[in-house]
Amino acid sequence: MKVTIEENEETGKFTIKVKTEDGEEKTIEIPKENLEEILAKLPPNVEII
């Protein structure tokens, strides 16, 4: 699983794009305050880009 994290400076939010092993892609946008909480919940086999 690969996770790409991009900061949107205009909105102050982060866009998180997840690509699973089977090629499925999902995108979510979260507030900056929630980034550490989300990262802590990721499984250890995740590659963060």
Rank of each mutant, 00 (worst) to 15 (best):
Thr15Lys: 09
Pro44Cys: 10
Glu29Arg: 05
Glu7Leu: 15
Glu10Thr: 09
Glu9Arg: 12
Glu7Gly: 05
Ile16Thr: 01
Glu47Trp: 03
Ile49Lys: 06
Ile16Gly: 00
Glu37Asn: 07
Glu21Met: 10
Gly23Phe: 03
Ala40Phe: 01
Ile49Thr: 07
Glu37His: 07
Thr15Glu: 14
Pro31Cys: 13
Thr20Ser: 09
Asn45Val: 04
Gly12Phe: 02
Pro31Phe: 13
Thr15Asp: 08
Asp22Thr: 09
Ile38Ser: 03
Val3Phe: 04
Val18Pro: 00
Gly23Pro: 00
Glu29Asn: 06
Thr20Met: 12
Leu35Phe: 05
Ile30Trp: 04
Phe14Val: 15
Leu42Gln: 00
Lys41Tyr: 08
Lys17Trp: 10
Gly12Pro: 13
Glu29Tyr: 09
Glu25Lys: 02
Leu39Ala: 00
Lys17Gly: 02
Pro44Ile: 07
Lys19Gln: 14
Ile49His: 07
Glu47Gln: 12
Lys13Met: 14
Gly12Leu: 03
Ile5Ser: 01
Glu6Ala: 06
Lys13Asn: 15
Ile38Arg: 01
Ile28Trp: 14
Leu42Gly: 00
Gly12Ser: 02
Val18Gly: 00
Ile5Lys: 00
Glu36Lys: 11
Val3Lys: 01
Thr27Phe: 13
Val46His: 05
Leu39Arg: 02
Asn8Met: 03
Thr20Leu: 10
Asn8Glu: 03
Ile38Tyr: 15
Lys26Ser: 12
Leu35Val: 04
Ala40Glu: 06
Thr20Tyr: 15
Ile5Leu: 05
Val3Gly: 01
Val46Pro: 03
Glu37Tyr: 07
Lys41Ala: 11
Val46Glu: 02
Val46Lys: 03
Ile16Gln: 01
Glu24Ile: 12
Glu24Leu: 10
Glu10Trp: 10
Pro44Asn: 09
Glu36Met: 13
Ile49Phe: 06
Glu10Pro: 03
Glu33Cys: 07
Thr20Phe: 15
Phe14Thr: 15
Gly23Cys: 06
Ala40Gly: 07
Leu35Gln: 00
Ile48Arg: 04
Phe14Trp: 07
Val3Pro: 01
Glu47Cys: 12
Glu7Pro: 05
Ile49Ser: 07
Glu29Val: 14
Lys19Cys: 13
Ile38Cys: 13
Val3Asp: 01
Glu10Ser: 09
Glu10Asp: 11
Asp22Gln: 07
Thr27Tyr: 13
Ile5His: 01
Ile48Asp: 01
Glu21Gly: 10
Asn45Glu: 06
Glu10His: 11
Ile30Lys: 00
Glu37Arg: 08
Glu47Gly: 04
Glu24Asp: 08
Glu24Val: 12
Glu33Val: 05
Lys13Val: 10
Glu6Asp: 05
Glu9Gly: 10
Ala40Ile: 04
Glu9Asp: 09
Thr20Trp: 15
Thr11Tyr: 03
Pro44Tyr: 11
Leu39Glu: 00
Phe14Arg: 14
Pro44Gly: 08
Thr11Glu: 13
Leu39Tyr: 01
Gly23Ser: 03
Glu9Ser: 12
Pro44Lys: 10
Glu25His: 05
Lys17Val: 14
Pro31Ala: 13
Glu36Phe: 13
Ile30Arg: 00
Thr15Gly: 05
Thr4Met: 08
Lys32Ile: 08
Glu9Thr: 14
Asp22Pro: 01
Asp22Tyr: 09
Phe14Ile: 15
Lys19Glu: 11
Ile28Pro: 00
Glu47Arg: 09
Asn45Trp: 14
Ile5Gly: 01
Ala40Met: 07
Gly12Val: 00
Ile5Met: 04
Glu24Asn: 09
Val46Leu: 05
Asn34Tyr: 14
